[in-house]
């Protein structure tokens, strides 16, 4: 079952007068079992993050650190009451594309690999329910 959100992000360097000058992270896409998430949902959550410019082209950001990006993704996870979100950098995603022979393999790898964030409010709640049923 596709019980994980899948997030793909990238790092963009800033170039000032021909020199690299830091960079930022951008969320490229977030996928649920209903497909890519709607822009209005991401807009709503990005407003809560007070992003200066919530979108650059189609990407959401900029996030100064991977930690900030992870928090943003986790907020989406919470909003959608999803138990997990896996984060993949663009490089990791591309490696999975190269490796996978078919769509099923790609989806399986996207769910099982990457940086996994657990929404314990959902996962522990299930465990609690299980415990209740066990008692009964």
């Amino acid at each position: 079952m596709m019980n994980k959100l899948i997030a793909i992000y990238k790092y963009k360097s800033h170039v000032v007068e021909g020199e690299l000058s830091g960079g930022a992270y951008f969320l490229m896409s977030m996928l649920s079992e209903d497909g890519p998430l709607e822009k209005n949902l991401l807009d709503k959550i990005s407003n809560d993050f007070f992003l200066v410019s919530s979108t650059v082209g189609e990407d959401y950001g900029p996030f100064e650190s991977l930690e900030d990006l992870s928090k943003f993704c986790f907020s989406i996870c919470t909003e959608l009451k999803s138990p997990y979100v896996t984060l993949h950098s663009l490089e990791e995603f591309n490696a999975l594309i190269e490796k996978s022979a078919n769509l099923t393999e790609l989806l399986s790898d996207l769910q099982s690999e990457g940086n996994l964030l657990e929404n314990v409010a959902i996962t522990q709640k299930k465990s609690l329910m299980q415990r209740v049923f066990d008692r009964v």
């Binding site: 490229m28 663009l90 995603f93 190269e98």
Partner: peptide, 22 residues
């Protein structure tokens, strides 16, 4: 050398049998 689109994403195209072509 796998080709990349304008977003830097590797081209992975799904065909009618769900094979993934690079």
């Amino acid at each position: 050398s796998i080709a990349l689109n304008s977003e830097g994403m590797a081209y992975g195209i799904v065909d009618n049998e769900e094979n993934l072509h690079k």
